[in-house]
Design a protein around this nucleic acid. Structure first.
Length: 930
RNA sequence: GCGGAUGUGGUGAAAUUGGUAGACACGCUAGACUUAGGAUCUAGUGCCGAGAGGUGUGUGGGUUCGAGUCCCUCCAUCCGCACCA
């Protein structure tokens, strides 16, 4: 009887749906286990074979956990707000909700064909009001919270107001608050606070709120008409669309993620994630330890604050450099320098990020004409402006030590400024060629630091500046606050309205604030975001709502919680359900979210813990990042100026243009000539120069899958040809799940053949038949060897070797003959996570209750079946394996040695010499040293 | 420049704690069978060599009885960050 995969798969997919086989309840007494896939953005292109790679792996693992006694949650949903649907809406006038709905249906259809064990009763969509009600609710909580550095957690803003009413804000607590607070505020007393206007009070509180409206430099993309987060900008171009991005000072909603910098960094240590992702996050957070030092200004009030990681080189300072955007620039510029400074500042402001990055090596700068005083030597230090200093990092000002910093060195050489050596290098070094930047050597020319090592000097200087009140130890982070407002339509409305310039929250019981209808999805004529087009859209019919919407990452920062309780309209998820499931045990998804989604989700999780919504600090305990599946593009070669196409093997003799050709017209690099002519009208008269073998061979290249390269392989087509079970196993068989690899269907027949072979084990004589007698020892051995390997492979997420081990098992069982029920039944359970359809069919034929396979206990390994009386020893001479000898396991080392010595091969390989030494590891290896 | 990862047959890859390198599969070669199929089965297949044998995991070195695996050097490829003070 033939393996009719199409019938079988259709039958069981229908069965699972009707019987809700994969529905999950919290009532189980089994321990919970939460497996989560990064939910997809439902794009118009549908799924390609790369998408399911991670879904298949997590599905196999979820099923395995189910078989081993866990109550497994494995949900799926859609990250359904986003730019592409909106761009499409702008072009076509179609409501983004409509295209999103259509795309979701297409995704669902494709996903259903692959036999996943998702509990679809828990499906969520970030764009549905019932979902974004809670995204808005979280925003409200963030707005109503501030980060208390004393308790190191978020607390209610009301407590801060109470503190202001009773004690005001002292200079001391202001400096304690400094981490992450950008805007300058002056201390005030409790009696002053109560005299402030509501507007002024709100303005002060805005410096503390975790969701806040603040002026900051943002990445502005004129083509998209919106603000982008740093991780949405790639090489100065927008990630989506590749449009230029410039810096612009804007009043924007932001998230004070910087308050959580240290906790985000510390939390990484306990996560079971790949090192590469953890390192990328550490890098992004960019903690550096150093000191802030104040240089009193000469002839001006106040001082200039710099951040340095090398306070040990303070005596080597020969000038100070300000970022062109620094607020002191104007004040410090002397009249003689004013023209030069104005020119410089305006050129560097107009230089986009991209240009700045493009020529890192060009040195530019200008002197302000002013000086500061060195805190220790009291010497005057010139103050310069240079665009190598970034306004957003540290204090936007640096102390330049040209002798021990490469950029300062270049700047000093270029402008002929002094270079003062303060460290004697620990190795030969020529200061005429560059700076000595190593943190080794002895400090010289530095008064009380002389003779110390760099590390000692750093500590000593930090205490010295603190003692004298010149500055303090400071930890600086590269991480910036996350911009939260987008000038876009298709996103969550921010639940805020304005009285004048002051924002107020919409009461939580009035959520969700629904996305209003608009006539067009473009900005208004006055430059307002699309929401400005909504008519009669005002709070209490009076106050203007906030017109920007939330960024794409808002909804995805907490979605893992909503699956636990997707229909709750009283809270984002009930505390009972949150505490039952806990955080995600296994998270599966792409590594490209390392600094975006994964950082924001961790931030919100920590915040939700601080306010008592969740009992854990991290959202995802263990994470596996699947590799990207690349496309294999095929090319034909057209002779320039003709309709003649040369086969790849002969193209060197001609001047040709390579043209992408649809991979469905190519089989094993051979082009379907008729299909090609029919593909496009312009090729209908094409002529071909063929290989000597009479075929046209295409060239190929490995590239990202994309429509424009005609290299997209959809799963549907392969499911139709080979079945979902084959595709599932083939995707796993390709290689380690975390590795990127080009897609290639060449090997799929091997996996398909394996399933047919498995099927044949039960259909030896044409009809279904199993042997009810007790299996032989050999059969038990084959089975238990496989049980052990399959379990080990699953436990270490080695799905590719799992498939291999199934193949070996089926090959051996085919060879051994004897279709014993006891063996094949166990094998069927073992295989079911990988190939759920075929195994359900077999399970039913074996006489079990349909659908009960999902609940069956996973086979246990019994080592007794693997005990051997003999072992085939590989015998090496000087580490080279020469021959094998089968010996009883019970032999002692001496007996093994005697047995080896008595072999004729041993005499041959000794070549008349006496063995120096025998290395004998019983049950493993024999090595003879000559 | 900094950080992370990866280099093994014609191809995808395996070798979990240092112990028979290349399992499993594709491809290829030869053959069988046939209702001619994207079917099934048999044998072979790292490289050099007729064979005995030699040689072989990016390069060069080291530790070890024994190294794909551990240590050092260098090279290549990919990814992330990048004038970060």
């Amino acid at each position: 009887m033939e393996y009719r995969f199409q019938e079988i798969e259709k039958k069981w997919q229908h069965f699972w749906k009707i019987n809700q086989t994969y529905r999950v309840e919290e009532t189980s007494t089994k321990p919970p286990y939460y497996v989560l896939d990064m939910f997809p953005y439902p794009s118009g292109a549908g799924l390609h074979v790369g998408h399911p790679l991670g879904y298949i792996a997590s599905d196999i693992f979820a099923r395995y956990k189910k078989h081993t006694g866990f109550n497994v949650l494995h949900p799926m949903g859609y990250d359904s707000f986003g730019l592409p649907a909106e761009q499409y809406a702008i072009q076509t006038g179609q409501h983004p909700a409509k295209t999103t709905q259509e795309n979701i249906e297409r995704y669902r259809e494709q996903l259903d064909k692959l036999g996943f064990n998702y509990d679809w009763s828990r499906e969520i969509r970030t764009s549905s009001p019932a979902y974004y009600k809670w995204t808005q609710w979280i925003f409200i909580q963030l707005f109503n919270s501030w980060y208390n550095p004393k308790t190191n957690k978020a607390e209610s803003i009301d407590a801060l107001i109470k503190e202001f009413e009773q004690q005001g804000l002292s200079a001391a607590s202001l400096s304690a608050l400094h981490g992450g607070i950008e805007t300058e505020i002056t201390p005030f007393s409790a009696s002053e606070w109560v005299t402030f206007t509501a507007q002024k009070q709100q303005g002060i509180l805005m410096n503390f709120r975790l969701a806040y409206l603040g002026e900051s430099y943002v990445n502005w993309c004129p083509a998209l008409g919106t603000v982008l987060a740093n991780d949405e900008v790639v090489n100065g171009l927008s990630e989506r669309g590749g449009h230029p991005v410039e810096r612009k000072l804007l009043k924007q909603w932001s998230m004070r993620i910087t308050a959580y910098a240290q906790r985000l960094l510390d939390g990484l240590d306990h996560l079971d994630w790949f090192d590469s992702i953890k390192e990328t996050q550490r890098n992004w957070i960019g903690r550096s330890e150093g000191a802030s030092v104040h240089f009193p200004l000469l002839n001006h009030e106040g001082s200039m604050e710099v951040f340095t990681t090398r306070p040990d080189t303070l005596f080597g300072v020969s000038f100070l450099t300000l970022a062109p955007e620094h607020e002191l620039v104007n004040q410090l510029t002397t009249d003689e320098q004013r023209a030069a400074v104005a020119t410089y500042v305006s050129t560097s402001k107009n230089r986009s990020e991209r240009e700045r990055m493009a020529d890192v090596n060009t040195i530019s700068g200008v002197f302000t004409g002013s000086y500061a005083t060195h805190p220790f030597t009291k010497e005057p230090i010139p103050i310069w402006i240079g665009d190598y200093v970034l306004v957003g990092y540290g204090t936007g000002a640096v102390m330049a030590v040209p002798a021990h910093d490469e950029r300062d060195y270049k700047f000093a050489t270029h402008f002929s400024l002094a270079i003062k050596q303060v460290i004697r290098p620990s190795a030969a070094h020529d200061f005429n060629l560059g700076a000595w930047t190593e943190k080794t050597g002895t400090i010289i020319n530095s008064d009380f630091l002389d003779g110390l090592s760099v590390l000692e000097g750093v500590q000593r200087m930090i205490s010295a500046i603190a003692e004298h009140g010149y500055g303090s130890k400071r930890i600086n982070y590269r991480l910036r606050d996350a911009v939260f407002g987008r000038q876009r339509y298709w996103g969550e409305p921010i639940p805020v309205y304005f009285k004048g310039d002051t924002p107020y929250l919409i009461p939580a019981d009035q959520l969700p604030l629904d996305l209003p209808e608009v006539d067009k999805y473009l900005p208004t004529e006055d430059g307002d975001p699309p929401l400005g087009r909504a008519t009669h859209w005002k709070f209490n019919e009076v106050y203007e709502y906030e017109k920007s919407t939330m960024p794409g990452w808002a909804g995805s920062s907490w979605y893992f919680l909503r699956y636990l309780d997707p229909t709750n309209d009283q809270c984002l998820a009930s505390p009972e359900k949150i505490s039952y499931w806990g955080n995600v045990d296994l998270y599966m998804g792409g590594a490209e979210h390392a600094t975006g989604h994964l950082l924001y989700a961790r931030f919100w999780c920590k915040f939700l813990r601080d306010i008592g919504v969740v009992p854990f600090d991290e959202p995802f305990k263990k994470m596996i990042n699947q590799g990207m599946i690349l496309g294999r593009s095929s090319f034909v070669y057209r002779v320039v100026g003709q309709q003649t196409f040369v086969s790849a093997g002969m193209k060197d003799g001609y001047e040709t243009t390579a043209i992408h050709v649809d991979i469905s017209l190519v089989n094993n690099d051979e082009l379907d000539l008729e299909g090609f002519k029919a593909w496009r009208s312009e090729y209908k008269d094409a002529t071909f120069l063929l290989e000597p073998s009479g075929v046209y061979l295409c060239g190929y290249e490995v590239e990202k899958m994309s429509k424009s390269k005609y290299n997209v392989q959809t799963p549907d087509e392969l499911v139709d040809r080979f079945g979902a079970d084959t595709l599932r196993m083939y995707e796993m068989f390709l290689g380690p799940v975390e590795q990127s690899k080009p897609w290639d269907t060449k090997g799929i027949t091997g996996v398909h053949g394996f399933l047919k072979k498995y099927w044949r084990l039960f259909h030896l004589n044409g009809s279904f038949e199993v042997n009810e007698t007790t299996p032989t020892k050999d059969h038990f051995k084959i089975l238990h060897k496989t049980i052990r390997k399959i379990r080990e492979d699953l436990d270490r997420f080695s799905f590719n070797t799992g498939v291999s081990n199934f193949m070996i098992c089926v090959n051996e069982l085919t060879e051994a003959k004897g279709n014993y029920r006891e063996i094949l039944e166990q094998l069927t359970i073992l295989l079911s996570p990988y190939a759920p359809h075929i195994t359900e069919e077999i399970w039913e034929k074996l006489g079990h209750e349909p659908g009960s396979l999902y609940e069956a206990a996973y086979p246990d390994f019994n080592p007794d079946y693997l005990i051997e009386s003999d072992y085939e020893y590989p015998v090496s001479f000087n580490g080279k394996m020469r021959f094998k000898v089968t010996l009883p396991m019970v032999l002692t080392i001496e007996e093994i040695q005697a047995a080896i010595l008595s072999k004729p091969e041993t005499v041959k390989w000794l070549e008349g010499k006496a063995p120096k030494k025998f290395i004998i590891v019983p049950g493993k290896i024999v090595n003879v040293v000559i």
